[in-house]
């Protein structure tokens, strides 16, 4: 089942990517060929197989509840595009 242009637009929106109009046909074709490759998986019998999320299947380590961080705001915000009064600025958010 091939993706249509409108599907690609929806995915781009989901991923918050602004697609250049002129690139859409090429992007659609590329995504379809990649998904075509992915579709080859359907031929594999995986009945009763548990999915594997981590290669080593270890367990999560826990850290002690200790404050180890100090205020580094100035350094961290020196690389930010827009800050004011210690806040990161973005265009107005509407709830």
């Amino acid at each position: 089942m091939a993706l249509e242009r409108s599907d690609v637009e929806k995915i781009a929106h989901l991923a918050h990517l602004d697609l250049v109009e002129a690139d859409l046909p090429q992007t659609t074709a590329a995504l379809n060929s990649i998904l075509g490759l992915a579709d080859q998986m359907q031929a594999v019998n995986t009945d009763g197989i548990e999915p594997l999320a981590h290669p080593l299947e270890a367990n999560q380590r826990l850290r002690a509840d200790v404050v180890t961080e100090v205020n580094n705001r100035e350094a961290y915000q020196s690389i930010a595009p827009a800050v004011e009064n210690g806040l990161y600025l973005v265009p107005k958010v509407i709830d």
Partner: peptide, 15 residues
């Protein structure tokens, strides 16, 4: 938290 006041139409973010 998003803080909506006092930034000339911008929103300030406090993490």
């Amino acid at each position: 938290k998003s803080l909506h006041e006092e930034f000339n139409g911008a929103t300030g973010i406090d993490l």
